[in-house]
C-alpha cells in the first residue's frame, strides 16, 4: 500500500487498541498492536526506499494480490518486496535498513508471543501485556521519528 494508507490503517488500529482491555481482550488487543506496528514498519520501509509502495497486498510472500481493473477482480502475482507480513526470514531481514533495526527487533518480540499467546494457552499476565505494549510503543516511536523527521527535513 501507499504510505498514507498504512498510516491511516495504523491510526484506526491504534484507536481500537486503546478501546480494548489488554487483559480481558488480550487476543484482539495483541493482534491490533501487531497489525498497527506492521503498518507503521511498512510505511517506514517504503519511506526509506527499502520496499516498494504499491497497491499489491501480501499473501505469503512473494505472492501479492493485485486488484484488477474492475471491482471484484483480483490476480495473484509475484512482486518485488512491497508490504511485508512478518519480520522473520533471512531474505526479509536483509531488506531492513540499520535505522529500522530496533523497530525490527521490537516486531520480532511481538511475533515471538503471537502463536503461544493467541493460538496457544500462554497465561495472559501483566508482564506479557506490558512487553507487548512496550514493543508496540517502540515501533510507533521509531517509525514516527523517521516518517516525521524526514517530512520536516523535506523541501
Amino acid at each position: 500500500m501507499k504510505i498514507e494508507d498504512h498510516l491511516e490503517k495504523a491510526e484506526r488500529l491504534g484507536g481500537l487498541r486503546s478501546r480494548l482491555n489488554p487483559a480481558d481482550d488480550y487476543e484482539l488487543w495483541y493482534w491490533a498492536s501487531l497489525s498497527a506496528s506492521m503498518n507503521l514498519f511498512n510505511a517506514a520501509l517504503h519511506h526509506l526506499g527499502a520496499t516498494v509502495a504499491e497497491d499489491c497486498f501480501p499473501h505469503n510472500l512473494p505472492v501479492y494480490i493485485r486488484p484488477g481493473d474492475k471491482p471484484g477482480n483480483f490476480e495473484a502475482v509475484i512482486r518485488p518486496f512491497g508490504d511485508l507480513e512478518h519480520v522473520e526470514d533471512e531474505e526479509v531481514e536483509s531488506l531492513i535498513p540499520p535505522r529500522l533495526a530496533l523497530a525490527a527487533a521490537a516486531l520480532r518480540e511481538l511475533e515471538a508471543v503471537r502463536e503461544p499467546g493467541v493460538r496457544g494457552d500462554m497465561e495472559i499476565t501483566p508482564a506479557l501485556t506490558g512487553g507487548v505494549d512496550a514493543a508496540y510503543l517502540r515501533v510507533l516511536g521509531i517509525t514516527r521519528f523517521i516518517l516525521d523527521g524526514e517530512a520536516e527535513a523535506g523541501p
Binding site: L13, L16, D25, W31
Partner: peptide, 17 residues
C-alpha cells in the same frame, strides 16, 4: 469465546480486526 467478546467491542470501521 474470549475473542468473540472482544469482537463485540469493535465498530464497523474496525473491519481489519
Amino acid at each position: 469465546e474470549r475473542i468473540e467478546r472482544s469482537l463485540a467491542k469493535c465498530r464497523t470501521d474496525d473491519y481489519e480486526m
